[in-house]
Computed example of a mutant assay.
Amino acid sequence: MVDVSRKRGGRSLNSHDEVRIPADLLFDLDELADRLATPNVGGYAYPDWSAALRHVRRRIALGDPYGIQQLLAMFGGMGSLNDLIIDHETTEVIARVRTVGWATAVDIGLR
């Protein structure tokens, strides 16, 4: 876990006054961004998704809890990360990022 003190608007975002980010989330975000930047078996790459994930990862690594919120928004609606047609291994990384992202949001009081 990465612990970062963070307050917004004079009040704590969670009961511990820190943002606890699982290190494996940061690792998986790096892996996913790398995988999406590289053409997959079908010859497709997703550089825009890769750049967006790298941006969110930087926010999360700095302890910005709203980086988690931005990450979770990438999984909703049409044209989301859920809609990408990619290889099985990348799909598994996406599932891990989504699962740990949601758990982190609950842990820090965003959900």
Rank of each mutant, 00 (worst) to 15 (best):
L25R: 09
L25M: 03
L26E: 02
L26G: 00
L26Y: 02
L26Q: 12
F27N: 12
F27R: 09
F27T: 15
F27I: 14
F27D: 05
F27A: 09
D28C: 05
D28N: 05
D30L: 07
D30T: 13
E31W: 04
E31K: 11
A33Y: 04
A33V: 11
A33L: 08
A33D: 14
D34L: 15
R35S: 06
R35W: 12
L36D: 14
A37Y: 11
A37Q: 14
A37S: 12
A37H: 14
A37D: 08
T38S: 10
T38L: 09
T38M: 07
N40Q: 12
V41T: 07
V41S: 00
G42W: 02
G43N: 00
G43Y: 03
Y44C: 06
Y44P: 03
Y44F: 04
Y44S: 01
Y44A: 05
Y46C: 04
Y46P: 05
Y46A: 09
P47G: 09
P47M: 13
P47C: 11
D48N: 08
D48R: 13
W49F: 09
W49R: 11
A51D: 13
A51C: 11
A52H: 08
L53G: 04
L53T: 02
R54F: 04
R54Q: 15
R54L: 12
H55G: 10
H55M: 10
V56S: 04
R57S: 10
R58F: 12
R58K: 04
R59D: 10
R59F: 07
I60H: 05
I60A: 00
I60M: 04
I60L: 07
I60E: 06
A61N: 04
A61C: 09
A61F: 09
L62T: 13
G63W: 03
G63N: 05
D64G: 00
D64S: 04
D64V: 14
P65L: 12
P65Q: 07
Y66E: 13
Y66R: 10
Y66N: 13
G67S: 04
G67N: 10
G67K: 01
G67I: 08
I68Q: 03
I68V: 10
I68L: 07
Q70P: 12
Q70A: 15
L71A: 01
L72F: 01
L72I: 15
L72M: 12
L72H: 09
A73E: 15
A73G: 09
M74T: 06
M74I: 13
F75P: 01
F75E: 07
G76Y: 10
G76F: 11
G77N: 15
G77P: 06
G77R: 14
G79H: 05
G79F: 10
S80I: 08
L81G: 01
L81R: 00
N82D: 05
D83G: 00
D83Q: 03
L84R: 01
L84W: 02
I86Q: 00
D87P: 00
D87W: 03
H88Q: 03
H88D: 01
E89H: 00
E89D: 07
T90R: 05
T90S: 06
T91L: 07
E92S: 00
E92K: 01
